[in-house]
Design a protein around this nucleic acid. Structure first.
Lengths: 232, 232
DNA sequence: TCAATATATTGATATATGTCAATTTATGAA
DNA sequence: TTCATAAATTGACATATATCAATATATTGA
C-alpha cells in the first residue's frame, strides 16, 4: 500500500500510487473523478477494452497486469506494452474518434477503477492543470511510439529480443530476475517476430551465458552484453 | 490563396488555410500567436528542426513541402511523414522534455511561420479551446503512429510500397498522377526498406500494369489492385 | 559544354527470418 | 491419476529482403 496524495494511505481509491495524470489535481478536481469511479475486477484472460469499440472509460490499474495490443486484420497481434499498478490505460481516441485503437487484456487477475471519459473531459474543461497533464501523457505516448517504430523497423532479431528483456527488467518487473506471466507468443508479439524465432534467439542469448532461462524464470546475467546487443 | 477565418483572405499570416490547431480560437487568442509569429523561408535541403535540439517553436507551413524523419544512430533515416501548406509541424516534445524527437528537412523551398512554444503554452493556459485542440492533435499523432507501427511490422514489401503510393496520392499530391519531389531513398525510408528493394517492387507494380512510372512521374492506373496489394 | 558527382537501376548473391511439421513439455478437466 | 489439449521447443527448409558491385542515367558547377 503506497501513499496517496489525496487521501493519505488508502487501498480502495483509484489513486493508490496516484497515476501521473491526476497527481497535480486539487482535491476538489480529483474528487470529481474519484467519487464517480467504478471499481471492477477482471479475471486473467478477460478483455478489458476491445479495439474498435466505443471509448467511454479510462482504466486506472490498482493490481495486476494487462497486455495492450493492436489486433491485425489477419489475426496476429502487435503487443504495444504491458500495464500494471499505478498506470493509466487507454486514451488515444479521446477528443478524436472516441474509439479504442488497442485491445487491453488481463494477464493476471486485475483490479482497476474505471473513470468515464465524460468526467475526465469535464475536469479538463475546468482545470488547465488537468488539460496540461493530458497533453503531457499523450505526448509521452507519441515519444514512446516513435522510438518503438524506429526500433522495430531496423533492429535485428537479437536486438529486438534483448530490448524486450531490458524492457521487462526495467519497466515491468523492476528486477534482473523475474518470473514471466507472458507466453512466448506474447513476447514474440512484443518483439515483432514469430514465436519460433523468439525462442531460438532467446536460446542463443542463454547459450552465450548472457541470460539464464528456465521455463518462465528469467535472469539477466550480463547486463552490459545485453545492452550492447539491444543496439544492434 | 484560401480563406482565413481570422483575417479574411490573407497571404502573409500563418493561418492561410488555418491549421486545425488554431481554427477554433477566438480572434483575441489567435492574435496572441499571430502577432508574435516569425516568417521564415528555407531553401530546399535545409534543416528546419533538428532531432535532439531544443524544441522552442512550432512551424506552420504556408508554402512548400518538408520531410519528417527519425535519424537512427547508425545513419539511416525512418521517414515518418511529409508536411505541406496548412500543416502544423512538431510538438511531441511539448510539456515533456522540450526536445525535437524528429528532424524536419525542406524538400522544396519552404515558407513558414514559427510560433514560440512559450506563446502556445501561454494560450493553452488561458484557453481550454486551445488545450483541447492540442490534445486532439497529439492523439491524432498517436493514432497515426499506431497504424504506421502495425503496418510496417507485418506487411510485405509490396504492401508497404503500395501503401506509400496511396499515401502520396491521398494525403500529399491529392491526385492519381503526380510528380515526386522525393528521392527513391526517401520513398524507401518511408516504406522501411532499402532503396534497391523499393525500386524492384515499384518495377513489379509497373510491369503488372498497376502503375505507370517514368522517372519522377507516377500515375496510379489500377487503384483497386493497388489497394488490395496494400493490405498484403 | 563537359567533367564530376549524385542518384537510379539492375544483377548476382548472402543472410535473416518465416513456415511447416514433428516432438516434447506443461496444463487442466474428468 | 489419466487423457486431452495447449504451449514450448527443435529441426529442416523456403523465401523475402538486404548487401554488394556494376552500370546507367541525371544533375550540377565550372
Amino acid at each position: 500500500m503506497r501513499d496517496c496524495i489525496h487521501y493519505g494511505t488508502c487501498t480502495i481509491c483509484c489513486c493508490e500510487s496516484t497515476p501521473p495524470l491526476f497527481r497535480k489535481l486539487s482535491k476538489t478536481e480529483f474528487n470529481e473523478l474519484h467519487s464517480e469511479r467504478k471499481e471492477v475486477v477482471f479475471k486473467a484472460g478477460e478483455v478489458i477494452f476491445k479495439q474498435g469499440t466505443a471509448l467511454t472509460h479510462f482504466a486506472c490499474f490498482r493490481e495486476g497486469m494487462a497486455k495492450v495490443y493492436y489486433e491485425r486484420p489477419e489475426g496476429s497481434n502487435m503487443l504495444v506494452n504491458i500495464v500494471g499498478a499505478g498506470r493509466i490505460c487507454s486514451g488515444i481516441g479521446l477528443y478524436t474518434d472516441n474509439i479504442h485503437h488497442l485491445t487491453v487484456q488481463a494477464l493476471t487477475d486485475v483490479n482497476l477503477c474505471l473513470i468515464a471519459t465524460k468526467d475526465i473531459e469535464a475536469v479538463i474543461e475546468k482545470s488547465k492543470v488537468m488539460a496540461i497533464e493530458m497533453i503531457t501523457l499523450t505526448n509521452q505516448n507519441s515519444i514512446q511510439f516513435t522510438h518503438k517504430l524506429a526500433n522495430l523497423t531496423y533492429k535485428s532479431m537479437a536486438g529486438r529480443v534483448a530490448e524486450v528483456l531490458l524492457y521487462l527488467q526495467n519497466e515491468i518487473y523492476e528486477s534482473e530476475r523475474f518470473t514471466l506471466n507472458l507466453s512466448r507468443q506474447d513476447l514474440a508479439d512484443l518483439a515483432a517476430m514469430t514465436k519460433e524465432s523468439f525462442i531460438r534467439t532467446l536460446k542463443e542469448l542463454k547459450d552465450a551465458g548472457i541470460i539464464k532461462v528456465n521455463r518462465n524464470q528469467v535472469e539477466i546475467v550480463k547486463l552490459n552484453s545485453l545492452t550492447k546487443i539491444s543496439n544492434s
